[in-house]
């Protein structure tokens, strides 16, 4: 039976090596908050025109200021959270481990994302029905290892799949505050070894893992107020860091450490519990 997705999916072929970082985004054409699956979601609250303006500003910051190349997975009517491409997969080299969402509302996104990666030259890995894993929302590379979250959305057993399929060791971190339901809303590893994190999202074991792996000089803790403005949910492209506006103290600290910081108003997406990192997926 022909795939119902075929007519919607671009056939772009394997990624061209342009020397630029590659980012996957999906426009907010059908973005809304029709259901609440995290504590931030407020049903019916989104101004879609404003969301589109904010998404365009993020797109421009990534392409024009940070110099990355953005690939687009088309929006699909009825899948409002497809805009949050960070959750679509965990990508390492040519392998894409496709998300299997905990909530049935997001599960229809999975075949669209799997087909996009397959069409673009990736080896795709899918998970069994009873094993939940929410892509780069819950698995972030830092140097030669992966910090991965579990409990709220992702099962810890799925972390074994990351190691098995990519060879990367995984540090499993329990997310103990339901507001920080993915690890990418409470940590952000930066390209040179710096590590933004919100200590309140972890228990003593998680904090000890951070202390054991990240040199003190590279740790950048954020306050509860900054974490609630999704300061950890940042996009890092080389020495540029992009996050939601309103965290000036963090911006100044990162600038003092040599980073260029861009703050973008992403307030419409915060109504759904996502910000700049959630809206992007590094794919190469």
């Amino acid at each position: 039976m022909p795939s119902p997705l075929q007519e919607n999916m671009p056939k772009t072929g394997p990624l061209q090596n342009t020397g630029k970082p590659h980012i996957l985004m999906s426009p907010p054409d059908y973005f809304t908050v029709d259901y609440a699956i995290n504590p931030w979601m407020i049903e019916g609250s989104v101004d879609r025109d404003n969301a589109r303006r904010q998404w365009d500003n993020l797109y421009n910051a990534i392409t024009q200021q940070a110099g990355a190349e953005v690939h687009i997975i088309p929006a699909v009517e009825g899948l409002p959270d497809l805009v949050f491409t960070a959750n679509a997969a965990f990508v390492h080299d040519d392998t894409a481990i496709i998300a299997h969402y905990k909530y049935k509302e997001r599960q229809p996104e999975e075949p669209f994302c799997e087909e996009w990666f397959r069409n673009n030259g990736y080896r795709t890995v899918t998970l069994p029905e009873d094993l939940f894993f929410e892509g780069a929302g819950d698995a972030l590379k830092w140097q030669d290892r992966v910090f991965a979250g579990y409990r709220t959305r992702t099962d810890i057993i799925s972390h074994q799949v990351i190691t098995r399929e990519t060879g990367l060791p995984v540090l499993s971190m329990e997310l103990v505050d339901n507001r920080f339901y993915h690890i990418d809303v409470c940590i952000c590893p930066l390209y040179d070894g710096h590590f933004i994190y919100f200590p309140g999202a972890f228990d003593e074991y998680g904090l000890r893992v951070i202390e054991a792996n990240i040199p003190e000089s590279k740790r950048v803790p954020v306050t509860a107020e900054e974490a609630a403005r999704f300061a950890c949910n940042a996009v890092n492209i080389n020495d540029t860091v992009i996050f939601n506006k309103g965290s000036d103290r963090l911006a100044e600290e990162l600038q003092s450490r040599g980073f260029q910081v861009i703050q973008v108003d992403l307030s419409e997406f915060l109504k759904s519990g996502g910000s700049s990192k959630c809206l992007t997926l590094r794919i190469a």
Binding site: I156, I157, H159, Q160, T163, P169, V170, L171, S172, M173, E174, Y205, R208, V209, A212, N213
Partner: peptide, 13 residues
């Protein structure tokens, strides 16, 4: 339990 249970402190937990 299996995985990186030592470095993640999962066994200790």
């Amino acid at each position: 339990l299996t995985g990186h249970i030592i470095d993640s402190l999962t066994l200790a937990k």
